[in-house]
Computed example of a mutant assay.
Amino acid sequence: MREPDFAGVFAGAGVTGWLYACDLDSGREVGHGADAGVPTASVFKVPLLVEFARRADDGLLDPTEQLTVPARGRTEGPTGIAAMLDDVTMSLRDLAYLMIAVSDNGAADALMARIGFDAVNAMLAGFGLHGTVVRQDCQDFTDSMAEDAGHGWPYLDPEDIARLRVLDPERTNRSTPREMARLFGLIWRDEAASAESCAWMRTVLGLQVWPHRLATGFPYDDVDVSGKTGTMPTLRNEAGVVEYPDGGRYAVAVFTRSFSPALNQPRADAVIGTAARMAVDHLRR
């Protein structure tokens, strides 16, 4: 069967794109640059979520433990506790929820401080995901962009963007479309952690509030889309799972880089859903 023209669809939206999709039950797959190393942006929060769940399973942390994240020194961002003005106290698992559902940078960094990069990377290596590495948290993203550009995001010109380490997979958090989809497959098959913890992760990933990327390709009440977005200057990503009422389950990871530095690019967001739908339709034929 002829594969879809992913390159043409991405180019028509003004982006370069990389994609991998697989049927979680049959193993059928389709890809476009599936093994290319790409910056993950906030998609790195999924490996952090998995390691959080595994440590809870092993009794290394209590997910109900209350943690106070002070306003002073907290990682900033547009959502969740990152946008709040006062000290916040909540459970570790509620921080994990905010990290995924609204991509809360403050919650993510509070959890990373507790869990550590070494633990996350050891988990990834243990699953054979050697192309996926987490070396920066959200504060590191912000600090490195300010250092590289001489000022902060979002006011970046093309010369600034060319200097950003957060866009270089060799110097920031990285993965491949295939490996990120594989990690979602481990969650959906109860292989990433205990069955109970995997069910909880599936619930949390299903509560992500952003409907403008992967979900746009599946505008149906009976099709469930769960996932995690990632955004940096010129980068728009999402990885997740699409579930059909007939039981079909498809892990999909789409990473893009736009030709333009503009912040508002609806076509670049929507092409993630378009390409994902093309891939899933191909697998379902």
Rank of each mutant, 00 (worst) to 15 (best):
M1S: 15
G8V: 07
A11R: 15
G12E: 14
A13G: 10
V15Q: 08
T16Q: 15
L19H: 06
A21E: 09
E29F: 05
A34V: 03
D35G: 12
V38L: 14
P39E: 08
P39L: 03
A41V: 03
A41S: 07
K45S: 06
L49I: 09
V50S: 05
E51V: 09
E51I: 00
L60D: 14
L61R: 02
L61T: 00
L61F: 02
P63K: 08
E65A: 15
E65N: 05
Q66F: 00
T75S: 12
E76A: 15
E76D: 10
G80M: 06
I81S: 03
I81H: 03
I81R: 01
M84V: 12
M84H: 13
L85E: 14
L85M: 13
M90L: 12
D94I: 00
L95M: 14
A96N: 07
D104A: 09
D104N: 08
D109F: 08
A110K: 01
L111S: 01
R114I: 03
I115S: 06
I115T: 05
F117V: 03
V120F: 01
N121D: 06
L124D: 02
G126A: 01
G131H: 03
T132P: 11
T132F: 06
V133T: 11
R135F: 01
D137Y: 01
C138T: 01
Q139P: 01
D140G: 13
F141T: 06
F141G: 03
G150S: 07
G152L: 05
D157K: 13
A162Y: 00
A162M: 02
R163F: 00
L167H: 05
D168R: 13
T172K: 00
S175G: 13
S175V: 04
T176Y: 10
E179A: 09
A181S: 11
L186C: 11
L186A: 08
E191C: 03
A192S: 04
A195K: 07
A195R: 15
S197Y: 01
S197D: 06
C198R: 03
V204S: 04
W210Q: 14
L214V: 10
A215Q: 12
F218M: 02
P219T: 05
P219H: 07
D221I: 04
V223G: 03
V223M: 04
G227A: 08
P233I: 00
N237R: 06
A239Y: 09
V241P: 00
V242P: 06
Y244K: 05
G247M: 10
G248A: 09
R249V: 03
A251N: 11
A251C: 12
T256S: 07
S258L: 11
A262N: 14
P266F: 04
A268I: 03
V271K: 07
I272M: 04
I272K: 11
T274G: 10
R277A: 13
M278P: 01
V280S: 02
D281N: 03
H282F: 15
H282R: 14
